[in-house]
């Protein structure tokens, strides 16, 4: 099992400077958050997906489709029930609250998908360089990328451990929620123990390779803002500005929803 999300492909997205990609990621969040009309949210999602397609990164979505579906459905149902509106649909559910739920669901999924595309096209090391070039100290930048790296590592340790415990007869699929939660103890304890142990070795290895030995540091990866970055940034800034203008002009909102 390959624990990391990064896909080593040669696309123009991969070749963008990490700072550009960070800006695009934050921009995608902004786009997803300024609108409330599900139709507009759908357009934003479509844009993100087209971008992901060009970056040849959509295959990673197959690994998280369940999360996307679960989060999306849960949000939709919750807001439909909790929210209020003007147009009754059935029972105590109103049209506006359903639409609102749909928007929020799309918004959350869009941000997750944008994040996955970012991680599929940007190496951990590039994230670090990007942060350093934005003026963040290397130690902090390294800590951020280590946290990103730890997630898939823990996932793959967890997989091995669940095999070991299933071999002993642990059955994670039956029982009510409380019983099931208790069944995860045999997984969590070894995951913690193993992770802490390997993190300890990891930090020793870092020190032994001169991490933080001197103030200055060079980078093996070459990154520079090039013509491509400028074009992408300009296009994206125009898009952002246009979206904000639309929103200020009153488009893309949801009438009649009351929380």
């Amino acid at each position: 099992m390959d624990p990391s999300l990064y896909l080593d492909r040669d696309t123009w997205v991969h070749r963008l400077d990490p700072r550009t990609k960070m800006f695009l990621l934050i921009g995608a969040f902004v786009l997803a958050f300024i609108f409330l009309d599900p139709l507009y949210e759908l357009v934003v999602l479509a844009l993100v997906l087209i971008f992901g397609y060009m970056a040849k990164s959509l295959e990673n979505l197959r690994r998280i489709w369940f999360i996307l579906l679960a989060v999306g459905l849960l949000t939709l149902v919750l807001w439909s029930l909790v929210g209020g509106g003007r147009t009754p649909l059935f029972l105590f559910v109103e049209l506006e609250s359903v639409l609102y739920g749909l928007s929020i669901a799309l918004r959350i999924d869009t941000t997750i998908i944008a994040g996955v595309i970012f991680l599929s096209t940007t190496r951990n090391e590039e994230v670090a360089i990007g942060l350093v070039k934005l003026g963040i100290p290397y130690r902090f930048a390294f800590a951020v990328t280590t946290a990103l790296r730890l997630v898939p590592t823990i996932a793959s340790t967890g997989f091995t451990i669940s095999q070991a415990q299933r071999s002993r007869g642990l059955d994670l699929d039956s029982g009510n929620i409380l019983q099931r939660t208790r069944k995860y103890v045999p997984l969590l304890v070894p995951v913690f123990v193993t992770t802490i142990r390997s993190t300890n070795v990891f930090s020793m290895a870092l020190e032994s390779k001169g991490f933080g030995a001197g103030g200055k540091r060079t980078f093996y990866l070459r990154t520079a803002l090039g013509g491509r970055d400028v074009v992408v940034l300009v296009v994206f800034v125009v898009l952002l500005a246009a979206s904000v203008a639309l929103r200020v002009a009153g488009y893309g909102t949801l009438e009649g929803f009351s929380g």
Partner: peptide, 30 residues
Amino acid sequence: LVFQDFEAQLFSTNVALEVAFGPENFAVER
């Protein structure tokens, strides 16, 4: 120093970057 648990010492996204990590720390030229 190379530790016994080699899995835990490797953290880069490719082999070349893994090797370059040490020299990077000592500000070796590209």
